[in-house]
Every structure is written in structure tokens, then in C-alpha cells.
Design a protein around this nucleic acid. Structure first.
Lengths: 188, 188
DNA sequence: TCATTGACTGATTGACCAATCAGTAGTATG
DNA sequence: CATACTACTGATTGGTCAATCAGTCAATGA
């Protein structure tokens, strides 16, 4: 699916990749659309779960925020998971069941970002009078940057993306860039 | 194309919509891919030109910045031009000639945003030590928010999007939200 | 031991659609 | 007037692919 794209992956391709017959695919999934929907749902669910585990873990608010930002950003060039979501956006424009999954995923991200910020405000680490708004802006920025990163290999490095994420997040919660954990962020 | 999507629009659909025969489409465009590419190129070019006209116009740096932000954001629900680009992103992942067009368009946006910010710094209106970085962040955020706006009707209002854009831009160039022109931005 | 069921195969079918092609009509050129 | 050229039509073709279907095989259980 990552190789060929949601639309132009044939049922026969999936059959080949999984070493089963085309018939078996249709034995388990009534239509190709069903298969795609279930795949997206399952991917989204495990992403949300991983995310929840991160924020449930130990650490200060800055550490948690940084971990969330890092989880957002693709681990490397070879981490192609985002290709799936860019594909899904295009499908989601027309198909409501896909759109629903996307909405849930995005809402989860925003809600969790918002929670992390609120917790930091409560503990006195952060200053922010609109955690939800900040979460929406950070989420939006990361979505946009990831598209750029995914599409235009070499035009935006991972470390520069992380730098951007930290600069923006720092501004949103009233920190300085240097307040973030030590991993070096490439200079602008 | 906006109705059915880049991938599932048939040549016959275009023929019907333009009141010509299918044959004529192939008389002018060797393949469907050619047609799509030329369409994207042409749309991108006129978008870039409009953008250049805006920044070449009169006004203070804040006014120009605000005009650029407003041009970015879809005019209304019925302004579906962004659907095209979300579609194109998905295609661009696999097809280089589409990717090239997308890269050019995005670079143009970033360059112009960066120029407007630099001009504002030069005139003393703005404070910003990394105009290019700021432009990348603002561009990214708008891309991401627009996807959300385009996909999830009703989940994010246009005025809230404009609010987000202004808050983020204000922070990037050292202004307060109230420094932007008067059109009311919805409360958070 | 025989019937039933669930997992699975691979060939087939039928719909769909980009691209082709033979042919028509109108216009310009010498 | 004849030739040539451009714009155009609509029927046809050939390839692609989701979905179906008849049938195999192994495990379960009465």
C-alpha cells in the first residue's frame, strides 16, 4: 500500500505480498474498500494507543511535550507511514467512512497535545491561556511540515523540522527553545 | 476534477463537462496524465501570479502579511480549490512531475512570506531573526489547518483559522494580535 | 467413519475506461 | 477549384482488475 498508493494497489498485489490467493482476500473482506477502511482504522487505533502511552509515562511537561513532538515527526526517510495518511486525506475528501477515521485521529492528537499543555500550565511549567488553540496550531503546523518532508525529500531535514516544532511549541507555552531536552536541534 | 478527484475523473467526464467528444481531449492531450499535469501547472502558475500581485501592492508590512494569510485561507466552504492540492499531494508522492509542480508552488509561498517578513523587519515594523524559518512554520501551519478545514466541514471555522494564522504570525514577527487589521477574528 | 465447516485456491467473468482510428466538416492557400 | 490542414466526432478496441465461483484440503466432532 505504501509502495503503490491506496488507489492503485490491486487486490492481486496484496495477495502477492501476503502469499495468499486473491480469492482469500475477498473471503475475508467483502470489497477492496472494506479492506482499506479496516486497515486505516487499525493503523489509526494503534497510533492513538501509542500516543496515549507516551503521555501516560513519567516525565515533566516539557519532556512529555517533546516526546509527543518527536513521535509526530517521521523517524527517518524510510519511515513512510505518513504516505498512508496523505493518501487517506485525498480519499477522505470523497468518502465519509475514511473521513471519520481521519477526524478521530486528528482529534486524538489535538486532545492529547491540549492535555499535555494544560498539565504543564497546572504545574506552573507552562504559560498558555488557550491550550486547545495552541494544540490546534501545533498539530496543524506539524501536519503541513510533514507533507513537505514526505513529498520533497531533501528539501527539509528531520532535524530542521524538529527545530520548527520546538520553536513553535516553545512560543505557544511560554518557554525558550533552550528549555527543551538536550538533543541538538539543527541551527536555522 | 474537484467533484470526482484527480484519479477517478474519467476522460469521458471531462468531455461531458466541456461539451466536446472524448476524442478531442486526446487530440489536444496525448494522455490523461498530460492533461492533469498541464492543469496543475496552469493552476499553480496563476496562483503564484496572484500572490505576487498581492505583495507588490501598496500597504504596510502588517497589511501585506494579513492579505497573504487571507489569500491562503479558502474564501468559503464552497471554495474547493484546496481539494485539488490535497489530491495532488497524494499523486505527487509517486509521480515526480507532479511533485515538481507542488515543490515550486510551496517554495513560492515560502519565499514570498519570507520576503514580506524581511521587508517588515527592514522597515522596523517586525522583529524576527529568522524570516525564512518563520515563513516555513507559517506555511506549514496553514497547509495543515487547510487540510482540516477542507476535510472536516464544520470542525474548524474559517474565522477560527484566520485567528490561528494571525496568532502564529504575530508571534513570529513580534507583534500582538491587535496589531492586525480590524476584521474581527473569532474568539478562541 | 462419515458429515460438516472453515480456510483457501486459481480460473473466469464482466464492467470499466484510456486510447485509437476512420471519417466529417470547415477554412485557408495557391 | 483543388489541395491540404486543423478541429472535431463517436464507435471500437484492448487491457486491466474487482469480484465471483466451483472446487480442494484439513480439521473437528458426532
Amino acid at each position: 500500500m505504501l509502495e503503490r498508493g491506496l488507489a492503485s494497489t490491486r487486490v492481486a498485489d496484496i495477495a502477492k505480498a501476503t502469499n495468499v490467493s486473491g480469492g482469500l482476500i475477498h473471503y475475508h473482506f467483502a470489497t477492496k474498500d472494506d479492506l482499506i477502511t479496516e486497515m486505516l482504522r487499525s493503523t489509526s487505533d494503534s497510533e492513538i494507543q501509542r500516543l496515549k502511552e507516551i503521555v501516560a509515562g513519567p516525565g515533566t511537561a516539557v519532556q512529555l511535550l517533546d516526546r509527543v513532538l518527536r513521535f509526530y515527526i517521521p523517524a527517518s526517510r524510510s519511515d513512510q507511514s505518513w504516505i498512508l495518511w496523505v493518501d487517506a486525506w485525498a480519499v477522505g475528501v470523497r468518502e465519509e467512512h475514511v473521513r471519520t477515521i481521519l477526524l478521530e485521529l486528528e482529534d486524538a492528537w489535538i486532545e492529547i497535545l491540549s492535555q499535555v499543555i494544560s498539565a504543564g500550565v497546572a504545574s506552573g511549567e507552562f504559560t498558555c491561556d488557550d491550550p486547545l488553540g495552541s494544540a490546534e496550531r501545533i498539530d496543524g503546523m506539524l501536519d503541513g511540515l510533514v507533507v513537505r518532508y514526505t513529498l520533497h525529500t531533501g528539501n527539509l531535514s528531520r532535524s530542521r523540522m524538529l527545530h520548527h516544532a520546538r520553536v513553535a511549541a516553545a512560543r505557544e507555552v511560554g518557554l525558550r527553545l533552550s528549555d527543551f531536552p538536550d538533543e541538538p536541534a539543527e541551527a536555522p
